[in-house]
């Protein structure tokens, strides 16, 4: 149990995918202009991440390892992720057309979000068990959502701030992202070892 809590805290805060590993920067910058959209994007990504962990673990351990073809992990993980994203896209399109429009190209781009492939590969690399993998996938999604929502909150405030014209738009966003990453380094002392 402690192990699972450790994995959760580690993946969501200390080794936050966005701010420590710099994975998934594209949606982090692209969909963080409104808190509502950021939150929904975070939910969609968390959903895909958790499912990816749950589906890729058995595929890796019961198919790839068993048939001695573990080098096919990249290919198989990518088709799993692509199908899951396709499924999420269909679901969002059906349930909330306005959210579907707001997320725009970033929804199908979850497919190529390196954070998700990274998650699946880390899961194999660190030799997690099934339950651990699911917790790891979920925690990664939570960390991603956290970073995205915090960023969007700051960016909403920035709308009213007197930003010099040359810094407006992407530049100030990248500066903020850098400072946030620095701040997240402070979590490094949270767990020993």
């Amino acid at each position: 149990m402690t192990e699972l809590v450790m994995i959760f805290i580690s993946a969501s805060l200390i080794n936050n995918f966005v701010l420590t590993y710099f994975l998934g920067i594209c949606p982090f910058i692209g969909v963080s202009n409104k808190t509502e959209n950021a939150l929904n994007m975070g939910f969609a990504t968390t959903f895909v991440m958790t499912l990816t962990a749950a589906v890729t673990w058995p595929i890796y351990h019961y198919i790839l390892v068993k048939f001695n073809v573990p080098y096919l992990e990249y290919v198989s993980f990518i088709i799993v992720i692509a199908s899951l994203v396709q499924f999420v896209e269909m679901y969002v399109k059906k349930s909330s057309p306005s959210l579907y429009k707001a997320l725009g190209i970033f929804l199908p781009l979850i497919t190529t979000n390196c954070a998700i492939l990274g998650l699946a590969l880390f899961m194999v690399l660190r030799d997690y068990g099934f339950l651990e993998s699911i917790v790891f996938g979920f925690a990664t999604g939570v960390g991603f959502t956290l970073a995205l929502v915090m960023m969007s909150g700051i960016r909403e405030e920035l709308e009213f701030a007197d930003v010099p014209k040359v810094f407006q738009g992407a530049s100030i966003t990248f500066l903020v992202a850098g400072l946030m990453a620095l701040a997240f380094m402070g979590f490094a002392g949270l767990i020993r070892g």
């Binding site: 048939f67 096919l72 088709i79 799993v80 269909m90 399109k93």
Partner: peptide, 24 residues
């Protein structure tokens, strides 16, 4: 083995997606 395992995974996912598409 590679072809069968990949094909199997892909087919399973495809069936899942076809089913989801008809529902959604």
């Amino acid at each position: 083995v590679s072809a069968v395992s990949m094909g199997g995974i892909a087919a399973a996912l495809a069936i899942f997606l076809i089913f989801a598409d008809s529902k959604l």
